[in-house]
Design a protein around this nucleic acid. Structure first.
Length: 747
DNA sequence: GGGGACGGCCTTTTT
DNA sequence: GGCCGTCCCC
């Protein structure tokens, strides 16, 4: 064709980005600073592989950490290459390997439609085990046990190996959990028997599959010609090993990550994987993406300063050609309640003055429970908002109840599903009976379902009838062989679940009833999808097992977003409010113990700050309700770290404070580079009278422009400004945040 | 076996 | 301040 013309997906890439896209063969590592166009590079790379016919879609494996990131990538690739993108192996680690395991489950002794245990199921199972072992659950807390199991699994330590290792035994004795390895063994055995995998199993079993069945490993090694891994700094050992195995044949593995944004050590992510990679692939090419396209210079600078406090980091210098932008602002409130009001009031003012949409704003916090005050404040002002995180639709009790029925219809070995539904809605089967059923199954080594069919051997009277009805209900559903929707609708009705909720006339009851209807609708939608060639119940359950609340469709077109910092990774917003900047909250009290933990918190701070495109506002309160008690709290050490830096850079001038009626203190931080213009009052960047016709100015949202006219009406000064990118706008000088640019305009 | 009252406990972040 | 588990009585 015409070699001189670049394909579309390459235009608009800088030199380094282009290199990352075009270096397709052999191992490579892309160190991508925040906002450096990482997703753009990944999608361009895949588009390039497809366009150049280096691989068919099903020969490319691309792994991300969230469904959202995967969906966005798939969409962008589709935009370039069309429907071919559908056949890509692209998704989260968990979902991709679930799909693979489903195909190969039989080799591992699992049914193809294995159940997936979520955290609640796992904890409930652990509780059963500690009870059976007659252990005190004050000492053996299910959540702690699960955490340890998960940690061991992610480091590929088998329970048998764990049990035989004196080092681990000592550790457990020290933690006053000498029986931990016994629990671990039983837990794993139980999952296998129940035909269930927990989240970690989706990775661990994949690893085991390739390890135990070299022919299968070879099959996939040959299939996947190109491997891409996003957010590589967040991979744990199992994930790395799987990736390494899959890349063994073709060696075309490209990992993209940023050590400064590693925030998942608590769930086993190992920043050393970056080092392992360099070691395992000595001939790799390293490409650094250091230009930030997302944020103002103030924001990029402050981010760099934050990370410079960490000892452990890869050298890289993130910079930007963007304008300086607004200073970083700090709001101080007397109480947590006041903090939320301050933030929401300022947010509202900013939407109005800068002609912004609500969706341009995000409120970020360290812990989910902080959302509460902000929700109230937003509701009071009638501002639409959406909360990401917290409880997802599929985690609601009533939804999980119906899903448990469906799980049990698919897999009668799923004991956790069974426990959940055997007496809900109440049908007169109490703990005594349930214990009896389980102990008979254990003694006679028969599957649960067989025992339940022989119930007349050990049950009499009303209880026997009740259990028998339950068995018939499941059998009927099982034998219909219908699609997911038909079975679900039958179960919802025949189990009495719908009736139970329908009779509850409280507001909550109505909502729960609606949720069940909503679930049924979504199953119907799933079944009716034209491209769906497996509308079975098992297929539906696996489809939804890995969805999180972040994957829900947005209710509002235009709403303020609230979420944890963790959930915000990979996203960007024009205005970011980072709230609760207090000691023991952020950094979290749990993370003050070690240098490594504290550095992870600081990286979290870095992630939060780098979400902002135009303006970053931090806030903290002096008192906060904790455990229902009012407590005094100290400003976060992170605030001090950046404050010191800014004063050092900004000569002698102390942080300026303006007491207002609400006793707000706003101090300006940031401003590391020589500022264009000069230090300005907190509210608007520059006094309105200083502006004159002919001045070049910079506006946060509209960019640079020239003042054409200054008019005064009703005591308000307005300016007509011709912006380079947005054309003519009339702005109120009292509010508009304008910086005067030097006359010789240069960005 | 079911339902209501009380007390302890908590709080990190998530696929 | 709220959830969950336990205890106690019907």
């Amino acid at each position: 064709m015409e070699p001189a013309i670049q394909p579309d997906y390459l235009s608009g890439l800088n030199e380094m980005q282009k290199q990352a896209v075009l270096h397709t063969d052999g191992p490579s590592i892309v160190v991508a600073g925040a906002g450096s166009g990482k997703t753009k590079v990944l999608t361009a790379r895949i588009a390039h592989l497809l366009k150049e016919k280096k691989a068919a879609p099903h020969q490319i494996l691309a792994l991300t950490f969230t469904n959202k990131a995967a969906a966005e990538m798939r969409q962008r690739i589709t935009d370039v290459v069309g429907n071919g993108a559908q056949a890509l192996w692209l998704g989260t680690f968990h979902s991709v390997f679930m799909k693979l395991l489903r195909r190969e489950a039989n080799s591992l002794g699992y049914p193809a439609h294995f159940s997936i245990y979520d955290t609640d199921d796992s904890k409930s199972l652990i509780k059963q085990i500690t009870k059976a072992l007659d252990l005190d659950d004050k000492l053996y807390k299910p959540s702690v046990i699960l955490g340890r199991i998960s940690h061991a699994k992610n480091r590929l330590i088998q329970p048998e190996v764990y049990a035989a290792d004196p080092t681990y035994q000592k550790e457990d004795a020290y933690m006053r959990m000498p029986k931990f390895s016994e629990i671990f063994l039983r837990y794993t055995g139980h999952c296998l028997q129940a035909g269930a995998m927990d989240f970690d199993d989706l990775l661990v079993q994949t690893h085991k599959l390739f390890h135990d069945h070299p022919t299968l490993a070879t099959k996939y090694q040959q299939q996947f010609r190109y491997l891409l891994i996003d957010e590589f700094q967040d991979t744990n050992l199992v994930q790395y090993r799987i990736a390494k195995t899959l890349a063994a044949h073709h060696q075309n593995i490209c990992v993209v990550g940023d050590d400064a944004q590693s925030i998942y050590a608590f769930r086993g992510a190992d920043i050393h994987n970056i080092l392992h990679f360099s070691h395992d692939y000595p001939n790799h090419k390293m490409i650094k993406l250091e230009q930030n396209y997302r944020s103002t210079r103030h924001i990029v600078d402050i981010a760099n300063h934050i990370i410079s406090h960490n000892a452990a980091q890869l050298k890289k210098k993130v910079w930007t050609a963007n304008p300086v932008g607004a200073p970083i602002q700090v709001l101080r409130a007397r109480s947590d309640m006041e903090e939320s009001q301050l933030v929401v009031n300022q947010l509202l003012t900013e939407t109005l003055n800068n002609q912004l949409r609500y969706r341009d704003f995000v409120i970020l916090y360290r812990t989910n429970n902080q959302s509460r005050n902000f929700e109230e404040a937003l509701r009071k002002q009638n501002i639409p908002y959406q909360i990401i995180g917290g409880l997802s639709f599929y985690q609601r009790k009533e939804v999980k109840d119906l899903l448990a029925y469906l799980r049990f219809v698919v897999n009668q070995n799923d004991t956790e599903a069974f426990r959940r539904i055997i007496n809900f809605p109440r049908r007169g089967i109490g703990p005594t009976t349930i214990d009896k059923i389980f102990s008979i199954a254990a003694e006679s080594a028969r599957p649960l379902w067989t025992v339940l069919h022989d119930l007349n051997d050990f049950l009499r009277g009303a209880t026997a009838t009740a259990v028998s009805r339950f068995v018939t209900l499941i059998d009927t559903a099982k034998q219909t062989n219908e699609n997911a929707y038909t079975i679900a609708a039958y179960i919802a009705k025949a189990s009495g679940l719908l009736k139970e909720l329908h009779e509850d006339k409280t507001v909550e009851g109505r909502t729960r009833y609606e949720h069940i209807q909503e679930l049924l609708n979504s199953i119907k939608q799933f079944v009716d999808q034209p491209e769906n060639n497996d509308p079975s119940l098992g297929s539906f359950l696996q489809e939804i097992a890995l969805l999180t609340s972040a994957d829900q469709s947005h209710v509002h077109e235009d709403a303020v977003t609230l979420m944890t910092i963790h959930a915000s990774k990979g996203l960007e917003f024009k205005y970011v409010y980072l709230v609760g900047m207090e000691e023991e909250l952020f950094p979290s009290a749990m993370m003050l113990g070690s240098q490594a933990d504290l550095e992870e918190e600081r990286r979290l701070f870095y992630v939060a700050v780098t979400r902002a495109q135009l303006k970053l506002t931090l806030s903290h309160a002096l008192s906060r309700y904790r455990f229902g008690k009012l407590t005094h709290v100290q400003p976060s050490r992170f605030l001090k770290e950046i404050a010191e830096h800014t004063t050092a850079q900004r000569a002698t001038k102390p942080a300026q404070s303006t007491a207002t009626a609400q006793s707000i203190k706003k101090s300006k931080l940031g401003g590391s580079m020589r500022k264009i213009g000069r230090a300005a009052p907190a509210q608007s960047s520059i006094g309105p009278t200083a502006l004159q016709v002919g001045h070049m100015v910079h506006h946060l949202h509209f960019g640079s422009g020239k003042i054409l006219k200054v008019v005064e009406t009703a005591g308000m000064r307005k300016a007509v400004i011709l912006f380079h990118k947005f054309g003519e706008k009339t702005l109120l000088l009292n509010y508009a945040k304008l910086d005067i640019l030097p006359i010789i305009e240069k960005a």
